[in-house]
């Protein structure tokens, strides 16, 4: 099916307009910049393994010399001491992330299919509003959203975290752009054969936009995984993992190592998701352009 929809281009090594010196200079530049980008992450990872005696020394030592797991053990020790069982914070974040991400993929894909493949009165205008929403950040709507949650009675509940994430404009936009390249002729012939729109959507469209799902998943995941939800959530037992961990790191200066361990642990999951789905994400992003 995949081969049918998206023929792969033949790869060709280019030699035109390239000189060895030029290539070498640019690659050296690129790798130096790559090092600069990785440097803080390397330091954070290294700090996470430093014993207290190495964290505060003069002159500073960038790379750990006697790595220890003490900081990670401390994270778990502090977790065990927390008032609400720590598993609860983990559950809250995992639950809101899973519910938000899967709901977002389904709801955004449904709408994206109609925007991409159905001709409707005002369809373009409705989609235009979604594109406009890409142009302002969530801070603009923060206050009305708070009032909205209050009126809906969703303050201090999972809904306050999950439901707004379902309507993220970026996901709908990327999905619609990607679906547009599915050939109409196949959908049309399925309609001729009497397939319902619902069937076409689930059995023909969705299996062929898997790269776009993964892309929506990674973006929605990043948002929800890092959501502290502190504006909407008051009850300790509903608070999320990033909130709990930020409380641990905020402890004191002596927690510098623990804090590094926490942020390294939190980074691992999104990083793994990204590495795992990179080629699909790049495939989706190739259709991400805004056309005039």
């Amino acid at each position: 099916m995949r081969k049918f929809f998206m023929p792969r281009k033949r790869k060709r090594r280019r030699t035109l307009n390239r000189s060895l010196q030029g290539d070498a200079a640019m690659m050296i530049f690129l790798f130096l910049m790559g090092l600069v980008m990785m440097f803080p992450i390397i330091i954070a990872v290294s700090n996470a393994f430093k014993p207290l005696s190495e964290l505060f020394i003069f002159p500073p030592r960038f790379i750990v010399r006697h790595p220890t797991l003490e900081n990670f053990k401390d994270v778990f020790r502090l977790m065990a001491d927390s008032w609400v069982p720590f598993l609860r914070y983990i559950f809250n974040t995992v639950f809101t992330t899973l519910a938000g991400v899967s709901g977002h993929v389904i709801i955004a894909s449904l709408a994206a299919y109609a925007f991409a493949k159905h001709r409707m009165p005002f369809g373009n205008a409705l989609f235009g509003l979604v594109v406009t929403a890409l142009m302002f950040s969530g801070y603009v709507t923060q206050i009305p959203n708070y009032l909205m949650m209050k009126n809906l009675g969703w303050l201090d509940s999972y809904f306050a975290l999950i439901v707004p994430a379902l309507a993220s404009p970026l996901g709908l936009f990327l999905m619609k752009q990607f679906m547009e390249q599915l050939p109409d002729s196949i959908l049309e012939s399925a309609r001729m054969d009497g397939a319902s729109e619902w069937y076409i959507f689930w059995k023909m469209v969705m299996p062929n936009v898997k790269p776009a799902w993964l892309t929506l998943i990674i973006f929605a995941f990043q948002d929800l995984w890092n959501a502290t939800g502190s504006t909407y959530i008051y009850s300790e037992e509903l608070k999320t993992l990033p909130y709990a961990l930020s409380q641990i790191s905020a402890g004191s200066i002596s927690r510098a190592g623990v804090s590094a361990a926490v942020s390294v642990l939190m980074m691992l999951v999104p990083l793994a998701v990204f590495i795992f789905s990179q080629s699909n994400i790049i495939e989706t992003m190739s259709t991400s352009g805004i056309k005039e």
Binding site: M37, M38, P40, I41, I43, A44, N47, Q222, W225, N226, P242, L245, S246, S249, S259, A260, V262, S263, V264, M266, M267, P270, L271, F274
Partner: peptide, 11 residues
Amino acid sequence: APSLSGQVYLV
């Protein structure tokens, strides 16, 4: 990676 790294910027 830096955009993925959540709170690592605290370093």
